[in-house]
Design a protein around this nucleic acid. Structure first.
Lengths: 233, 233
DNA sequence: TGCGAAAATAAGTTTAGACATAGACTGGAA
DNA sequence: TTCCAGTCTATGTCTAAACTTATTTTCGCA
C-alpha cells in the first residue's frame, strides 16, 4: 500500500486509483475480483467492496455482477457544486454582507416561471427582487417566486429584515431540486442593479425546489460580471 | 417504513429523509442514535450507519461522535454535474455530430492558461481550436492546450480525425481536475465560429486536468447562445 | 446448429460482534 | 473559579460469514 490514510478502505481506494492513473490497469481492463484484492491487501471482502464502490461512484470503475470490475473506458466527468448561502459566500470572502429588497409583492406567475415550478400560469405568488452586496458592491441579483401553499407563513414575513434564501432553507427542506446554468446579456434593469452596462454577459443560475406540496420556490440568480463559479470534483 | 426500495439501507434513507422533509424532525433536532434506529427498523446497526452516512453526504444530517446526529440547520445546496463527451451529448439529443479543427499548432502558453495549468508562461504546448456541431449548427467552441509532457504521444496525433477530448479521456486518466463556470461576451472570433453576433452572452466552462506529471490539458468551452447546463442534485 | 435450462460466478447486501476514536462531560486539584 | 485529566458515549471502521441477485457460461436436447 503506497498511501497512508485514515482507513483501510481509503487506502485501498487510493492505491487502486494510483494503479489506474499510472496505467498499470488500463482503460477497459478487468481488475482482480474483490476476493483476490481482499487477500492481496489483507482485509475483509466488505472493505474492498466499500473501496471499489467509491471508485465506481466517481466513475473510474464499472462494476457488474458476474462480469467483474473493469476500468471505465470513457469516464464521464463529474463535478460537485456547492451553492452556499449568499451571505456566507460573501462573508467567507472577507467582505461585509448587505442586501436590499428592490420589490416584494404578490403577482401572477409569468409563463416561464410557471413552467419551472409546474404551476398554472397566472397563479398569484410572492415575488421578490433582491440585490446582494459585498462591501457595498453588487454581487448578485436574485429574482425569486415563493409559493405560499408549499411554504406556509411566507406571506407574513418581512424579507427586508430576513434574507428569503436563508428563511426558506432553514424552514422548508426540499425533496427535489432542479438547477441550471446559462449566460445572458444584462437587460436594462439588471445592468442598473449590478452597476454595469447593458449587454454585459452575466452568469445565470436558476434553481427550483419542491416538497410534497409542490414547488416551494424558484430563484433566478444573476451574478456580477466576471464572476466565476468553481466546482470541485 | 413507507418506502419500498431495493435495499434496507435505502428504505431507511428514504424514511429518514421523509421525516425531515415532513418536519417530524426539525432543523437542529438531534435524532435517535444508530442503536435506537436499528431497533426501530429491525436491522443491524451497520445498516443504519450506511443509511445515515448517505444522508450526511447529501448534507441533510450532521454527525459527530459522541454528540450524535442532528438535522442540518443550513443545508448547503449540493449539485452534481455530469459533463459528457461532446459527441455523446449531441448524439444523445438525437442530432448528428461533426467537428472541425480550426487550428492545431505548437504555441507558447499565454499567461492566463499558464496560471490555470501551473506551468511557466511561454512554455510551448499543443494548441487546438475546435468547433463542435450538432446537425451542422455550431454547438460549442473548444479552445484547448495539451501538455505533451503529461500526455506523451499527443504530438503525433491528428486531431482532425480523432476528437481531442475523447483521445485524452481514453488515454490519460487524471488524479485532479479543476472546473469553473463563467459568462462572457462573444468576441469577434467566437461570434463567427458560433454563427452569432459579437457581444452575445456565452456560457463558458473551463476545465484543467492533472496527473503526476503535471497538467495534462486545459480546455475552455464556449457554448452556443441560449445553452443551458442542467445539474442534478 | 440453435436454443433454453441449469450452473457458476462476482458483485450487492446484511448481520452480529468487536474495537477505535473524537469529543462532550465530570469531578477534583490548583 | 479555572483548568486539566479521566470517563463515557455515539459514531467510525472492520471482520467473517452468510445469503441474494444479475449475468455469463455451459451443456444437453431438439
Amino acid at each position: 500500500m503506497t498511501e497512508k490514510s485514515a482507513s483501510k478502505a481509503q487506502a485501498i481506494t487510493s492505491e487502486v486509483r494510483r494503479r489506474i492513473v499510472d496505467r498499470e490497469w488500463r482503460q477497459g481492463d478487468r481488475i482482480p475480483d474483490e476476493a483476490e484484492l481482499a487477500v492481496e491487501f489483507g482485509v475483509a471482502r466488505a472493505t474492498v467492496n466499500k473501496a471499489l464502490q467509491l471508485l465506481a461512484e466517481e466513475g473510474l470503475l464499472d462494476r457488474k455482477r458476474r462480469a467483474g470490475t473493469h476500468v471505465t473506458v470513457n469516464p464521464a466527468r463529474k463535478a460537485t457544486l456547492t451553492i452556499p448561502i449568499v451571505r456566507e459566500q460573501i462573508e467567507g470572502a472577507g467582505m461585509e454582507y448587505s442586501h436590499r429588497v428592490v420589490a416584494q409583492k404578490r403577482s401572477p406567475l409569468p409563463a416561464e416561471a410557471a413552467a419551472r415550478m409546474a404551476l398554472p400560469e397566472g397563479r398569484v405568488l410572492i415575488h421578490l427582487r433582491t440585490v446582494h452586496y459585498g462591501d457595498g458592491r453588487p454581487f448578485q441579483v436574485e429574482d425569486r417566486w415563493i409559493n405560499p401553499v408549499a411554504a406556509p407563513g411566507a406571506e407574513a414575513i418581512d424579507f427586508q429584515r430576513i434574507n428569503a434564501n436563508e428563511w426558506l432553507v432553514r424552514n422548508f427542506p426540499w425533496s427535489r431540486a432542479d438547477m441550471a446554468f446559462s449566460a445572458e446579456n444584462a437587460d436594462a434593469r439588471n445592468a442598473r442593479l449590478l452597476e454595469t452596462r447593458q449587454g454585459t454577459a452575466l452568469l445565470i443560475l436558476q434553481r427550483t425546489t419542491f416538497n410534497d406540496l409542490g414547488a416551494i420556490t424558484s430563484a433566478r440568480l444573476a451574478f456580477h460580471p466576471g464572476y466565476m463559479l468553481i466546482a470541485t470534483p
